[in-house]
Design a protein around this nucleic acid. Sequence first.
DNA 1: TATGTTTTGTGATTTGTTTCACATTAACAC
DNA 2: GTGTTAATGTGAAACAAATCACAAAACATA
Lengths: 212, 212
Amino acid sequence: MKQITKHNIRNSLRRIFLYHGLLVRLNTMGVTRVFSYTLAEGAGVTPEQVRKDFSEYRIRGNRRGGYLTVTLLSEMETLFNRDRISNVILVGMGNLGQALSKYGQFIQRGINIVASFDIDPYKQKARADSNVYPPGRLQEIIERFRVTIAIITVPDISAQEVCNDLVNMGIRGIVNFSPVLLKVPVYVVVNNVNLSDEIESVVMSVSRMKEE
Amino acid sequence: MKQITKHNIRNSLRRIFLYHGLLVRLNTMGVTRVFSYTLAEGAGVTPEQVRKDFSEYRIRGNRRGGYLTVTLLSEMETLFNRDRISNVILVGMGNLGQALSKYGQFIQRGINIVASFDIDPYKQKARADSNVYPPGRLQEIIERFRVTIAIITVPDISAQEVCNDLVNMGIRGIVNFSPVLLKVPVYVVVNNVNLSDEIESVVMSVSRMKEE
DNA sequence: TATGTTTTGTGATTTGTTTCACATTAACAC
DNA sequence: GTGTTAATGTGAAACAAATCACAAAACATA
């Protein structure tokens, strides 16, 4: 098989999401100004790390005065392209797919699932109100909504095939919940999320701890 | 607030889960022997990385002969404590909780959700067959099944509180799907999984790529 | 306007992780 | 047996990430 490099997601960016989450909460609590150590404390990192992360993305504060909550939020949100919300599609309406399509957190975070797809005609009919389409309409909807991001929640056997199709139809970012590591061209970003692994790694760490 | 250090999960261990997944598939395909580059190719890493990871966990192969699939699988599975399956509990039966409780991949991987909990009495009744209990019965069930691992899928506001309770009741490993970073004592392992972040980071990487 | 204090911003250093390079070993051919 | 080849296993080197340490800036106060 031809080696296709996966485009990975920067570490510091991951943490900036974390800071953003904290910041949203602080903001609703009426906090107007934060310091690197405020965020560090909440995120479980050092204040230097917070500042380095900001520095890397050209986010700057006020020496002595810290950061204004609203400014910081809007700078992050610009960074996240959150001024306009992100339209994504979801492929595979099994248990996980259905749960994600109803997951309230997403829209609060500017992630809008414009349509879901499944080969099962029953799932298409059963939820006619909830935008579940057959895969045949993928191309049309991707173009209509100018979607570039897809969430894959299909079974492992079909995941790579679905992925290839999506890439051919113009998808440039994929969040993959199926338990296979997808191969994509370099110009496509993939984030492989394996839920079993997430749980197993905790199981393992705990049993190792007991041994020691 | 007192700083409580989070016990993190080793990087190499994460990759070993990946290799394991590949290996299971190769094994069912009838492959009896693998090499470091076989796994490396499938996991998107270098062969040296694979060998280093194995080396770290005292998994050794046969020079020139590579690794026997079944031996490697059983070595990994011993490592994962997979000889006996892991009993876990799930707290919070919202959309995501329900999906996870029905997620077929888990049992295949030796993860057994012995009971689910929710404060909503409707959810307890509605699925009387499916082991949904009120939180009042947590202590009892944790002790009865000797559970040490919990999956948290409650709303963000109650997450830290639920977490504290669980730790007091003897839980030593937590997989947290609520969008807060849980603080736990050093002897507890936490894996914070934020689904919005997983998607957002892809959204962001894609929009950065377009700019360049 | 000068002085002290607080907090940022970032080069320098340390720590951690991945890759390189090659000695070591096992399998096989002859 | 003996030589050749194909793999592992691992110190050393290169690279990446996190922390340290301190200069620069902003503010308060006199």
